Simulated scan of single mutants.
Amino acid sequence: MAIGTGIVLLVAGLILALDVIQVDLDFIDDGALGTILIVAGVLAIVLSLIVNAQRSRHTVVEDRVVDDRRVR
């Protein structure tokens, strides 16, 4: 889910940074807001990939004893 959020932030930031859409508010700079959204999107994607890589590294091995034999 964080990868999708990162992609949405990245696309929104690129739209604002490349002046595809212009926000006509005096107190908001389109380029700065676009850059902030691009950085936030890239961070969200990278962090979610790191967390998913760490999550998949853990394996659980369960030992059972059945009829006096160890079964894995």
Rank of each mutant, 00 (worst) to 15 (best):
V39G: 01
H58I: 15
G34W: 14
L25E: 14
I38G: 03
G31Q: 08
G34C: 09
V20Q: 09
L10Y: 08
S48E: 14
G41I: 12
G34F: 13
A17G: 01
V20G: 04
A12V: 12
V20K: 09
H58R: 07
R70P: 00
A32Q: 09
V8Q: 03
V51T: 10
I15F: 10
I7K: 04
D29K: 12
G31S: 09
I45M: 02
D29H: 06
G4D: 03
L37H: 09
I21N: 05
V46S: 13
R64K: 06
L25Y: 13
I38C: 06
L47D: 07
T59S: 15
Q54L: 12
G6N: 08
A17R: 11
V66H: 09
R55E: 10
F27P: 01
R64M: 11
D30W: 04
M1R: 06
V42Q: 01
D24K: 08
Q22E: 12
V61K: 09
M1F: 11
A40F: 13
A53P: 00
I3S: 10
I50M: 07
I45H: 02
V61W: 07
V60F: 12
A44G: 05
V61T: 14
S56A: 11
Q54M: 11
R69P: 01
R72Y: 07
V20W: 15
D19T: 02
V39W: 12
L37W: 11
H58L: 11
T35P: 00
I15K: 03
A12S: 12
V51C: 04
T5P: 00
I50N: 02
N52W: 12
R69W: 03
A2F: 10
V65Q: 13
V61H: 10
V65R: 15
A44E: 10
V60R: 10
I36T: 05
V46H: 01
F27L: 09
V39N: 01
V11W: 03
D63G: 01
V60A: 04
S56W: 06
L10N: 01
V65D: 01
S48R: 09
L33I: 10
I50D: 05
G34H: 04
D29E: 12
T59Q: 07
R64W: 05
L18S: 09
V39I: 15
T5C: 09
V11P: 00
D19M: 00
A32T: 14
D67Q: 14
D68V: 07
G34A: 04
I45D: 01
A17I: 02
S48M: 14
G31K: 11
L16P: 08
V46E: 03
Q54A: 05
V20T: 13
D67G: 14
D67P: 02
T35S: 03
D24N: 13
A32C: 02
L43K: 00
G13T: 07
I15P: 03
I36S: 05
A2T: 11
V23Q: 00
D30F: 00
E62Q: 10
